[in-house]
Write a protein that binds this DNA or RNA. Structure first.
Lengths: 348, 348
DNA sequence: CTGAAAGCGCTAACAC
DNA sequence: GTGTTAGCGCTTTCAG
């Protein structure tokens, strides 16, 4: 039960060295290259260390070696389960590999992204995993590059950077084809602030391409800037003229609010209206109707980001764009998506 | 657009000192006690630092001062939005106060809690915010105490420790009274593994007290150990003999699955069955039916934990149990909760 | 108001 | 296989 009552002040390598009758260097070796130490001393040192609960001081080690075994993580917000699930994956993978993480959230503000990177740099992280608003114009990435600090983008997808992501555009194109095959003709896309997210832009581009390919005219884009008003904004569209038969939402949080908006408007989902999301957050599967969505492996996106970054670090180099990982997505057809209503189903 | 192309290797205090024609000590003072430096040199030093993008090396500073301005955070999992929302609050508050965080997740395993604390200690955190399985028996807390490392518990509620939490037991007692007033007689509680969470135990205790106070006999406790089987487990109860008219769930994630279970069993919520949760996660409000739940201020729990901890640190002492903060909860009556079905409503 | 010097705890040459 | 030594970048007495 008790953990040992000996040590009061922080224990240092010198304390261990003294008690083990060896030099501090040998203690250091015992931890860093156990093979270079005789079995006898190794066991003695380990024994004493365990007894006193000694762990090498990370700051001193970092200062000396210039490596911290800490990864910075920059995310828009943890209030969106997508990023929380991803961070969970990052936390698990880093723990396995003996790394720690220092996360910061930006609330989608680019100035905060830059500040966060500067901060992480001074904290001495070995590398950074980040989700930026727009990879093409990010000053945060610029700073990282200028400082030659290794990084991996998660969710963002850009040919000039190492990224772990899914094919946002393809996914939406495919989705539109599926909806078209279900008889939908009036399909509207709903998204948050387009300029705050390159993913949303890519998804929108895929949507437009898909509509074109299906020979359909897209309904006007519905932008819902704030969560507070999202339900009202969507309801307004649903009550307007020539209401869509399908709402394609740029993420699951919006899709869930669209579900609510449909309810408010007394529309049945999926009988009167089909709704789809994007992200595959866990909760979506437990909803009624179960949310149809393009599932991306959020935990794995985190995991792979860590693995890609750490692999490069071990090889003493930054990850590069050519190593980008494209993870596969899939469409989960939940109950929120079905055939277009009969009277709307102009199967030409 | 460009961020400056000068510096290649990491810039140190010496570089700044040289260019500013002052000693390193003066540069240090400029950052740490600006008042002790003449306005002229201060501005010169700041100018050059900004120009070169210099930021003091955190490891060196930590090693020297024995303070890192980093807080450790230990949470069960980020897959539960409760903790993700809380971490968001922690991240925001720490950023405001000039601290950084190092989170770790435990997946509710006590050995992992202990390991995480040991790890954070060697990383030199100034303090730790944690959610443990059981505050009364936590070895992680024991280690923290033995090392005199400041900490604050979030969500846990125990008289011997500094905690930021809500009155779990009271909340459930009150809830039961509300349900009784709505005519419910057969009320069952549903929770995860009781032994993995002292909150769940407290909520259960409050439930039992409330039932007693209302003169009701509680239906057998429904324990749903795994998320994978939760819906089936709950459905089984709903299909069994003398089905409850109300399901009181120990958290929102379980409540959402209970909603699903009701649907599977072709029960209408709230007409045939009332369901309540606990936590007040954001998504609950957007569901249909909107989830009735005991709302706790997750973001604020994080914020206050940080503030309590940092205040104590500034005063050079650990937070103590007497400073514990009890935040207020409230019952949000969403559409998932209503009067008991008429035929079951034995208003004596 | 500013400088010189010591040292936080650790690791990595380099000797032995 | 082990010890000696220097120094990572910074802050902090202590002088001046």
């Amino acid at each position: 039960m008790t953990i040992r009552s000996k040590p009061i002040g922080p224990i240092s390598i010198l304390d261990i060295a003294e008690r083990a009758n060896v030099s501090p260097a040998t203690v250091s070796r015992t931890f860093n290259r156990p093979a270079d130490v005789s079995k006898a001393t190794r066991e003695r040192v380990h024994g004493i260390s365990r007894e006193l609960g000694y762990r090498p001081n990370a700051s001193a080690r970092t200062l000396r070696t210039q490596r911290s075994r800490v990864l910075g993580v920059i995310l828009p917000t943890l209030d969106n389960p997508v990023f929380a699930e991803c961070l969970q994956g990052i936390a698990q993978a880093t723990a396995t590999l003996g790394f720690s993480i220092m996360p910061a959230t930006t609330d989608y503000q680019v100035e905060v992204e830059l500040e966060a990177v500067a901060n992480l740099l001074s904290l001495g992280v070995d590398g950074t995993i980040l989700v930026v608003s727009d990879a093409a114009t990010s000053r945060a990435l610029e700073l990282l590059a200028q400082r030659h600090s290794p990084y991996v983008l998660a969710y963002n997808r850009h040919p000039a950077h190492p990224c772990v992501s899914v094919a946002n555009d393809t996914a939406l194109d495919e989705l539109v084809q599926k909806l078209a095959r279900l008889g939908h003709r009036r399909i509207a896309m709903v998204c948050g602030q387009l300029k705050a997210s390159d993913r949303a832009q890519q998804r929108h581009a895929g949507f437009m391409a898909g509509m074109r390919r299906a020979g359909l005219t897209p309904a006007p884009l519905v932008e819902v800037p704030f969560v507070e008003t999202a339900i009202d904004d969507i309801a307004r569209v649903l009550l307007g003229p020539s209401r869509p038969t399908a709402l394609v939402c740029s993420n699951d949080l919006i899709a869930i609010r669209a579900l609510r908006a449909a309810h408010v408007c007394r529309l049945r989902v999926p009988n009167d209206l089909s709704i789809t999301g994007f992200d595959g957050i866990r909760t979506g599967r437990d909803l009624t109707p179960a949310l149809s969505t393009i599932v991306q492996p959020n935990n794995d996106i985190g995991r792979h980001s860590v693995e890609l970054l750490v692999r490069a670090l071990h090889e003493g180099r930054p990850p590069n764009a050519a190593e980008s990982i494209s993870l596969s997505h899939h469409f989960f057809r939940g109950e929120s998506c079905a055939h277009a209503p009969a009277n709307d189903c102009a199967t030409s």
